[in-house]
Design a protein around this nucleic acid. Structure first.
Length: 449
RNA sequence: CGGAGUAUAGCGCAGCCUGGUAGCGCACCUGCUUCGGGAGCAGGGGGUCGCGUGUUCGAAUCACGCUACUCCGACCA
């Protein structure tokens, strides 16, 4: 992608409304634009990151056996009356009336709708277990939206729903999602710690949320330091097998958010040298809630003995529009964002130091074409601007590798690679640049960690 | 929902107290010179001063009302 032809409205000054670093950087890097309180447009660079995050989520959901579909944003009030949540949900739910004065709502979540789909088609125990998910915009009319897309009113959420014959089976479904979540965050380069959580208005009695440690996080958390370097289950994990040992391994060490923490229990469970008391950002939340929805909504299947069985359900949420700022909170420095390769909007940026110079343009055009042909997601800064402006932009938007070529290097037959994360620079023959960048980038794509 | 605050060009701000017809930096456009860490010079374009009502000969400026947005607290992917 040639930057001169791209749409990247970077800001020199920080808009005054932005308080936390991720919000500031998303605005400065031209990733988002606020349209109203808690409502954002995703500009091309931001959207590209959002889609990379979404793709990783999809791949790991699919790997775990969940099946993707898509439900609408607008839902009928009648469905929510069946579960009793139409009245229970309160003002956070955006209620809408259509031209016929029928009542609708902009979905804050989809338990009712997925249960409706399930009960319409699934009649036999032989069709279980089943886990259906979608990635769709949600709306919750937050009292106080803030921190950019971290807490917006309209947000994208991956929500999965599991259906099982018994509590025992439902817990297995819960464990599959648990492992899928561990892998999802790891592929984005994030260290996210599963913590026992309050079940909130969704209800239920088994719940974990994943927390990324960050000073700007909204919740206080207490956990065992040994959770931070625990190895993540690999790509060969058998999701049809017994995941109990992995689940127990991860949940054996103490970790809880402020709503759930019992300080005496925490101090008893965690030796002092391993205690971590910090702030964190919630990036995912999973629940087992039994028959809370299947019971009132009559989601049943016929069992082997011919009797009706009310299914046990769980729901599993990750917010991609929150993960993007969470990633920035985790990965940035004074100069800007530092994307992990797996979610970077571009994997490398080619900086033409003297755009307009015929020889330099020709060499850069050729190198860029070769890098693209090698499968690298490239941004090509071909703008007619000073070198400083280009370096500043590249640093700000956080592209993992900068490959720098100018008249001086061209005369020597050399290009330079700058590693955004470490600041390290290496000079190498132009002819070696493609192989070198490929070698650096490919292992970091984490497509099969 | 309680408390505090802001609203003037795309962004950041000054002007308001003490009313006299709007300014600075960046960005943008043109030309020339530049080109390894946000280049220089010269010229240029762009504003219903959030909205409404009032006071006044005259309102960005004073008064009243409204709206939007932000921050702090109670709630949440």
């Amino acid at each position: 992608m040639r930057l001169s032809r791209y749409f990247l409205p970077v800001l020199r000054d920080v808009p005054k409304e932005a308080e936390i670093v991720s919000h500031r950087l998303m605005l400065r890097a031209g990733m988002i634009r606020q349209q109203a309180s808690g409502l954002y447009s995703w500009l091309p660079l931001g959207y590209k990151v959002l889609m990379k995050v979404q793709k990783i989520i999809e791949e790991e959901q699919n790997r775990s056996g969940a099946i993707q579909l898509l439900m609408p944003t607008i839902q009928s009030a009648d469905l929510w009356r069946e579960s009793g949540r139409y009245d229970a949900y309160g003002k956070e739910m955006l209620r809408i009336e259509d031209r016929h004065e029928r009542e609708f709502l902009y979905g804050p979540t989809n338990e009712e709708m997925i249960t409706d789909i399930f009960r319409a088609y699934v009649k036999s125990y032989k069709d279980l277990p089943l886990n259906l998910y979608h990635i769709q915009w949600k709306f919750r009319d937050e009292v106080r939206p803030r921190f950019g897309t971290m807490r917006s009113r309209e947000f994208l959420m991956k929500d999965a729903y599991s259906f099982d014959l018994s509590q025992e089976d439902a817990v297995k479904a819960y464990e599959r999602m648990f492992v899928a979540y561990m892998r999802t965050y790891a592929r984005m380069g994030l260290t996210a710690i599963p913590m026992r959580a309050d079940t909130g208005p969704i209800g239920g009695d088994l719940s974990h949320e994943w927390i990324v440690l960050a000073d700007t996080g909204e919740s206080a958390v207490f956990c065992d330091r040994r959770l931070l370097d625990k190895p993540i289950p690999g790509p060969d994990t058998d999701f049809r097998g017994d995941l109990r040992p992995i689940f127990e391994d991860w949940t054996s060490l103490y970790a809880a958010t402020e709503e759930m923490v019992d300080m005496a229990e925490y101090e008893a469970a965690v030796p002092e040298e391993f205690r971590v008391s910090a702030r964190g950002i919630e990036v995912g939340h999973i629940f087992y809630f039994g028959t809370k929805y299947s019971e009132p909504m009559k989601a049943t299947v016929t069992g082997p003995d011919g009797k009706e069985i009310t299914v046990h359900m769980g729901s599993y949420g990750i917010g991609p529009t929150r993960l993007v700022p969470a990633l920035i909170e985790a990965f940035h420095d004074d100069a800007g964002i530092i994307w992990p390769v797996s979610v970077a909007p571009f994997e490398a940026v080619l900086i033409n130091l003297k755009a307009g110079d015929a020889a330099c343009d020709a060499a850069c055009d050729k190198l860029c074409a070769e890098l693209e042909a090698a499968g690298i997601d490239m941004l090509y800064d071909d703008r007619d601007q000073g070198a400083g402006a280009k370096f500043t932009t590249a640093d700000l938007i956080g592209i993992p590798y900068q490959i720098i070529l100018g008249p001086r290097g061209l005369a020597a037959g050399e290009a330079e690679i700058k590693h955004r994360k470490t600041g390290e620079r290496e000079t190498l023959p132009i002819a070696d640049a493609v192989a070198r960048l490929k070698g650096l980038i490919e292992p970091q794509r984490k497509t099969d960690i």
